[in-house]
Design a protein around this nucleic acid. Structure first.
Length: 282
DNA sequence: CCTTATGCCTGAATGC
DNA sequence: TGCATTCAGGCATAAG
């Protein structure tokens, strides 16, 4: 499931290809995937591709913006004109050919390239919004953990409004801190040696420091490995991320802790599968 | 304020 | 083999 590192990887790639190019045609194959009128984006030029939390923002020349959320199984894969003609596409995990049966929206770009929005489960969406609507979306989102103003004091401060929440649930709250999903919540808490079930109010300052450091370290490390492909995440080229090899707890319930050999625990916390080491994490 | 359940979805994994 | 069931979970929303 695409979280901050996966979305960041896609955005960095798309930012190399898309700016200054024009959306020639927009094919919406699944109506519920595209919110708003596709006509308002057709013929418009892409100014910039960026990210806020887990959402991809594509700014258009008419002061409208495409807000793209991949949710669980969304993919945004770009194919150059050359790749489209020659074939021999990289394997996308949901079929080598694009479009495929999971393709929900196709952007035809002025240089002959195409951008495919694929989504097996149709949770994801592309929303066309105005500048003021975009501001409202941004206003609801929390701290960016990879901006330089992020630190343990800020983290403690924003989460202080939910003292009785379990720390893992609090980390998943996008109105407080953005970009952390189930994988990186578990990984960060393991690295910081904090039990997911601890309440926000129970954390000591030294633990806030460890947690903030762990979040930054894990997210940056994952970006450097082009994200985690646990199921069907793919980058903008259709390739898998490599961070799955670096995961310490996520997906490893019942296996041995890589630090102490204790058997990792697994259960549900706040409705999410949660894995932790009862020996390393306190 | 908090937690839990539900709905949106479909492929993969499991059970008989 | 095949059919039914369960699970995966981001996030909005409703309910307890």
């Amino acid at each position: 499931m695409p979280e901050l590192p996966e979305v960041e990887t896609i955005v960095r790639d798309l930012a190399k290809y898309l700016p200054h190019k024009t959306i020639k045609e927009l094919k919406v194959l699944n109506k519920k995937t595209f919110l708003g009128s596709p006509k308002l984006a057709t013929g418009k030029t892409i100014k910039q591709v960026s990210r806020r939390g887990k959402q991809i923002i594509i700014d258009l020349t008419n002061d409208r913006h495409l807000v793209i959320h991949l949710k669980m199984t969304g993919q945004l894969i770009w194919r150059s004109k050359k790749d489209l003609i020659i074939g021999g596409h990289p394997i996308t995990g949901v079929g080598e050919e694009l479009p495929n049966k999971f393709t929900r929206v196709i952007f035809k770009i002025s240089d002959g390239s195409e951008l495919f929005f694929n989504d097996i489960r149709k949770f994801g969406y592309i929303k066309l919004v105005s500048g003021s609507e975009l501001e409202i979306i941004f206003a609801r989102l929390g701290l960016e953990p990879l901006l330089n103003n992020f630190n343990d004091k800020k983290l403690k401060l924003v989460l202080a409004s939910k003292p009785k929440s379990k720390i893992k649930s609090a980390l998943l709250d996008q109105t407080k801190v953005v970009g952390i999903g189930n994988i990186y919540a578990d990984e960060s808490l393991w690295l910081a040696k904090i039990l997911p079930s601890r309440t926000v109010a129970s954390l000591k300052d030294s633990e806030w420091a460890a947690l903030a450091r762990a979040i930054v370290k894990i997210l940056q490390s994952s970006i450097s490995h082009r994200g985690t492909s646990f199921s069907n995440y793919r980058d903008a080229q259709g390739s898998s991320g490599n961070f799955i090899k670096k995961l310490k707890v996520y997906g490893r319930g019942g296996a041995k802790c890589l630090k102490c050999k204790n058997i990792l625990s697994k259960s549900k916390l706040g409705g999410r599968g949660t894995v932790w080491c009862s020996h390393c994490q306190k």
